[in-house]
Write a protein that binds this DNA or RNA. Sequence first.
DNA 1: GAGTGGTCTAGACCACGCG
DNA 2: GCGTGGTCTAGACCACTCA
Lengths: 259, 259
Amino acid sequence: MQHLPVTPEEPASAAGVDTPAFSPLYQQIKALILRSLQAGEWKPGEAIPSETELAGRFRVSQGTVRKAIDELAAENLLVRRQGKGTFVATHSERQVEYRFLRLKPDEGDLDSEGPAQRSILDCRRARATGDVARGLGLRPGDPVIQVRRVLSFKGVPTILEDLWLPGVAFKGLTADALASYPGPTYALFEEEFGVRMVRAEERIRAVAADPSQAELLGIAPGSPLLSVERTAYTYGDRPMELRRGLYRTDTHHYFNELQ
Amino acid sequence: MQHLPVTPEEPASAAGVDTPAFSPLYQQIKALILRSLQAGEWKPGEAIPSETELAGRFRVSQGTVRKAIDELAAENLLVRRQGKGTFVATHSERQVEYRFLRLKPDEGDLDSEGPAQRSILDCRRARATGDVARGLGLRPGDPVIQVRRVLSFKGVPTILEDLWLPGVAFKGLTADALASYPGPTYALFEEEFGVRMVRAEERIRAVAADPSQAELLGIAPGSPLLSVERTAYTYGDRPMELRRGLYRTDTHHYFNELQ
DNA sequence: GAGTGGTCTAGACCACGCG
DNA sequence: GCGTGGTCTAGACCACTCA
């Protein structure tokens, strides 16, 4: 195993850096950068130190730092901008505003539809049920915040969504904040609660709308809807949000690229 | 722009290599490798020449070849195997057998369910309608091959699929071949027709089963189904297959990772 | 012009697979 | 033991951004 000369006499693993043994140097550097991101040393939108500076700090060559940053950029945790620097990724940037939303209009694109109109139906403190606790890595009965909202495009209600958030991390979240925040919800989470979502998983099914769902979406009861269950993760693969969306697919579709 | 010293007196673009001007050397190398893949110089499953050999052939450093191969490997066109070489990706490998199938059982995984049972209901020559022609880059009336089949897991019919293929490229495809081929359908396409699918797009909607669809899947008419419209592309982003699948999602779900 | 990321090179050594 | 890909380094130069 290569040693990280931060503490030259000891291997990295003995110096409190818990990367797996025998991992390449650049993976160790990547883990160190990740740790700084997680610790909030650099905030979303800010520049991290230059490659040269990091190379000096870690006592490795610039090429090694480069490879570490390459991987973090590929995972959308960092964004490189030639001539300017490398920045901590954020959900506030215009071009990634709907990074996790795969619903596209059948004609045109989301941009041409303008921003979604959010109508917050409910936002309240509750206790985690077994399912929610399991999904969020909590214990049943732990506090959660539960949100119900409808998203409309061009005035047409299209998505009915329920959100479950860990109560501790999101203490103080209100319907007002959700309704009035100008950017994406995940940007609000970053800014107000320091919780940055880095990846998500979705499980998709076709279901029939029940009467109350149908009324909220303005469709006939029994209409087929896409059920999209999302788990969103922050740094370290910790689940921080469960979401269940019901999508109308008469004017929109869920778009997925396979490679 | 860097020059490719294949014809040392001329820039690469003048030497018949139609890469965009001012592209980095490794992008030009990538385009050359891609061209060889497309031309069938190396077949799926075969090893391509070593990095050192390619570096010699193209008169660039090994690191430059490396970066080109890195990108092709990231796009799943090549597969690196340390100590052995770099191989042309294929749909025949066990670990990627269901590379484009995102349907997972609610419990367990696809492997534990064993291979899908394929029942070919229909396989016939036809003429492209406007929609199909548009999707496949053909003209209306051009010959196509149309396939209808049902996939069952553990004996339960789960997917009803219609396929449209360009008639010229897939001349001679029969229901028998589709039913008896032991591997994935895309492996059959590779092996028998030299058509390798490299990426695909899916558009997903929720629909209600009509009576004939319901009967084929053994469910009640009107049941919600996932409609998955896929366009599969071969090298050079040429569409080579349209597919419309109806997925039961009472025991399975469509799984998607967002990052 | 100074500073940043992006490309390219050349050479050394490591890890793996296989005969 | 040889050949493969994988890592690491050091240094040169390019392209972009901004003051």
